[in-house]
Amino acid sequence: MINVQEADFDLNKQYTMLRAKDNTDGAIVTFIGLVRDFNQGHDVTGLFLEHYPAMTQKSLEKISDRAKKRFNVNQLDIIHRVGQLNLGDQIVYVGVSSPHREEAFSCAQFVMDFLKKEAPFWKKETRKQHNKDVWVETNQKDKEALKKWQ
């Protein structure tokens, strides 16, 4: 399941859906990314995420397909929010179920590393300094994270 949406998501609901799908799973790993108040040396007061729907969906499907081929997982769910988000709001959810914890953890990390670098989301932060909006460039740390998967 892959959803790009403005609405928030319910972690308990997502977990329950993952758990109900396959009784051979021994592990469920979830990751949630949140809007924080600090990024790349700047105080942040909000975040706006923009995307091109067809391109974004296709990119997330490609990341998901690569992850499923690489790791022994039974279920991989991705939800990414768009639109205006406030401090503390949930941005992204990755849920993985697998027979073994190592595969579930690795798969979730793989998805996030590729999502941060390859998924076509454009982020505009509202920064405390001068109360201005700034489009955010990809972080060097996110670029480096992909090297471990090669």
Rank of each mutant, 00 (worst) to 15 (best):
L11T: 12
N12L: 09
N12T: 12
Q14C: 15
Q14S: 11
Y15L: 15
Y15Q: 06
Y15M: 14
T16K: 15
T16V: 07
T16S: 14
M17L: 15
M17A: 13
M17V: 11
L18P: 09
R19C: 13
R19W: 05
A20P: 01
K21A: 14
K21Q: 15
D25P: 03
G26V: 12
A27T: 13
I28R: 04
F31L: 06
F31D: 03
I32R: 01
I32Q: 09
I32Y: 06
G33N: 03
L34M: 15
L34C: 01
L34F: 14
V35K: 03
R36K: 13
R36Q: 11
D37N: 15
D37A: 05
F38T: 12
F38G: 07
G41L: 12
D43R: 15
V44Y: 04
T45E: 04
G46F: 06
L47D: 12
L47W: 07
F48W: 10
F48D: 01
F48T: 08
L49C: 10
L49Q: 07
L49K: 01
H51D: 10
P53G: 12
P53D: 08
P53N: 04
A54V: 05
A54F: 08
A54Q: 10
M55W: 02
T56I: 04
T56G: 03
Q57A: 09
E61C: 13
I63A: 11
S64D: 01
D65P: 03
D65W: 11
D65F: 13
R66V: 00
A67L: 06
A67W: 14
A67G: 05
K68P: 03
K68A: 11
R70G: 05
R70E: 13
V73Y: 11
N74D: 12
N74W: 07
L76K: 08
L76Y: 12
D77V: 15
D77F: 06
I79K: 02
I79E: 01
R81T: 04
V82L: 09
V82W: 05
G83T: 12
G83S: 03
Q84T: 13
Q84S: 14
Q84I: 02
L85D: 01
L85H: 01
G88T: 04
Q90W: 01
Q90I: 03
V92Q: 03
V92M: 13
V92N: 08
V94Q: 06
G95F: 12
V96Q: 09
V96E: 13
S97C: 12
S98A: 15
S98N: 07
H100Y: 14
H100K: 14
H100P: 05
E103L: 06
E103F: 10
E103H: 13
A104N: 08
A104K: 04
A104Y: 05
F105A: 10
F105P: 10
F105I: 09
Q109P: 00
V111G: 06
V111R: 05
M112C: 05
D113A: 11
D113Q: 07
D113R: 05
L115Q: 00
K116W: 09
K116E: 06
E118M: 06
E118I: 03
A119L: 11
A119N: 10
A119F: 02
P120V: 09
F121L: 09
F121D: 02
K123R: 09
K123M: 07
E125M: 01
T126E: 08
T126Y: 06
T126F: 07
R127A: 02
K128C: 08
H130L: 13
K132I: 10
D133F: 02
V134C: 04
V136I: 14
E137S: 14
E137F: 00
